[in-house]
């Protein structure tokens, strides 16, 4: 890590000049994006500095309790995001509950698995490893669950006649929902499958780039990146399968009926 180049605030200011230039261009061409650009830019600066401060503090404390609390806050925020991404899906509280609990289970399991058997920092809960790992796994699992739940509820609405036709012929709810369940899981896992296939060709993954910039040997960075990709794939699959199956049960009842009345109204 000795060839790591530190950035000064002056360097940051120089790169921020680009944003100012874009805002100026927007004013000149009357594009009217300068306002939203300024707000987004400010939010970015504030949020990242805040995260930096929080992480510094957490790293210094190195307490399992504070680390756990931070992890929980991240999961709850991600649950809110899942809920917000549902359009005419489950009622808000149900979307939040299903999404958050599936994520809590999947992301926690996969992160603990990585921390205790692969990365093995000392102590195992070292926030310097635990929080970035959780963050990466969580971000992808969140997207997978949000997509899967949305596709599930959408599919059940669109294919209601086919599902009920199966039920009428004596199919169980699991069997009748199988086509929609498959579609939901395919949709949920599409981004991670695509990124597994395209990584390195189209773009260098952010974490790997970061490690290389920090002076890590490319092959070492590649190893880390591969591990992360596998963890993400595992976490996303586990989370999406859990959320979609709970969703299937919520969309049907113990008398094997399709219960679209449990979805949010239009």
């Amino acid at each position: 890590m000795n060839d790591y180049i530190r950035l000064e605030y002056l360097d940051l200011g120089l790169s921020a000049l680009l944003l100012l230039a874009v805002a100026g261009l927007s004013l000149l061409l009357q594009l009217r994006i300068e306002r939203s650009l300024a707000i987004a830019g400010l939010r970015c600066v504030l949020q990242l500095f805040l995260v930096g401060l929080v992480l510094t503090k957490l790293f210094a404390l190195a307490s399992p309790w504070w680390t756990g609390l931070a992890a929980l806050a991240m999961i709850l925020f991600a649950g809110r995001e899942i809920m917000a991404r549902q359009e005419r899906g489950f009622q808000r509280l149900w979307a939040y509950g299903i999404g958050t609990s599936a994520m809590l289970m999947a992301a926690t399991l996969v992160t603990l698995f990585a921390l205790t058997t692969q990365v093995q920092p000392d102590p195992w809960y070292d926030p310097r490893y635990a929080l970035p790992l959780l963050g990466m796994i969580l971000g992808n699992t969140m997207t997978g669950i949000a997509l899967g739940l949305q596709r599930l509820t959408e599919g059940a609405r669109q294919q209601r006649a086919g599902i009920e036709a199966q039920l009428c012929l004596g199919a169980t709810r699991r069997a009748a929902m199988l086509p929609v369940t498959r579609q939901a899981l395919t949709t949920a896992l599409m981004p991670i499958i695509n990124s597994l296939a395209a990584t390195g060709l189209v773009s260098l993954p952010g974490m790997m780039t970061g490690q290389i910039l920090a002076g890590v040997e490319p092959m070492e960075a590649v190893k880390y990146q591969l591990m992360i990709m596998f963890l993400i794939a595992g976490g996303t699959t586990l989370g999406a399968v859990t959320a979609v199956f709970v969703g299937v049960y919520r969309l049907t009842d113990s008398r094997d009926r399709l219960r679209l009345d449990r979805l949010a109204a239009e």
Partner: peptide, 13 residues
């Protein structure tokens, strides 16, 4: 299976 139902617009899966 015992009490079959054929709706006016049957569904197909």
């Amino acid at each position: 299976q015992r009490v079959g139902y054929v709706p006016a617009e049957p569904g197909w899966w």
